[in-house]
Amino acid sequence: MLLILGSLLALAFGAGFIGSLSGLGGGVFIVPALVIFAHMPMTVAVGASLISVVATSAGASVAFVRDGWTNLKVAMLLECATVTGAVTGAYLAGIVPVIVLELLFAAMMLQSAYFTIRKHGDDILAKGAPLAERLDLSGEIPDEAGNLVHYEVVKVPEGAALMVVAGLMSGLLGIGSGALKVMAMDYIMHLPLKVSSATSNFMIGVTAGAGALVFLARGDVATTIAAPVAIGVTVGALIGSRLLPHIKVNALRTVFVIILLLIAVEMAWRALSRI
């Protein structure tokens, strides 16, 4: 038993550590790790991953909320969309054929790889959309000199629509969908990148929690897998976040992208070999 337990803890630790350094979260790496190395069925890996995403996001987002980077109103508004998507996705995960899940996972890995290599600068808007103004979604962030800069929000319905997709992917694939959430807020709604990242971190736990509750209530979470995975990913993410300021993450970016592309190819190959 100790060999199995040690292997699961080591896999989960590695996934949590890389997930933390890359900023993509442990779920992106633990699902393929469990499927490829531990030979677990996709549904089991997804259930275990959702629990671990809840655990890691709890620690990460606390600091961002405390320091004031999270836009709570944007988070709560968009969580209506992500929770709807996540509950639907988690429900469908028990029905959708594995081949579809594997192909979707491969596609999400490609999106995460693109998110990792893209270059972007903040495009702060002075005038928001009427709906965003009515919902009081604007906020303030400090610039380089420490002066507060007001930002506005646009395209709320479009952002919310992409959030439903992010939630759906989270429930179906056991990932936090952080990359998709940041892109929705940053690209579409024009929130500053740091606010998008902090708000996404806040939302990831709730989105994954919605999916995890469906899996737990359905009995689709294997305690022998999910428990060591939750512990390993949490410890790995914690150590990763502690080391983050001392590591040149930009230098590792190419490595992360290669890992994501390899996972995408492996998952797509698995799916296609079922045909």
């Binding site: 709560m76 969580e79 509950v87 988690a90 509750l213 469906v214």
Partner: peptide, 21 residues
């Protein structure tokens, strides 16, 4: 407005448990 949004999210989480059952 945000009480309603937050209540919807809470209900969504509870609905997840019921849907799983």
């Amino acid at each position: 407005s945000y009480v309603v949004f937050t209540a919807y999210v809470l209900l969504g989480l509870i609905a997840g448990v019921l849907l799983g059952r």
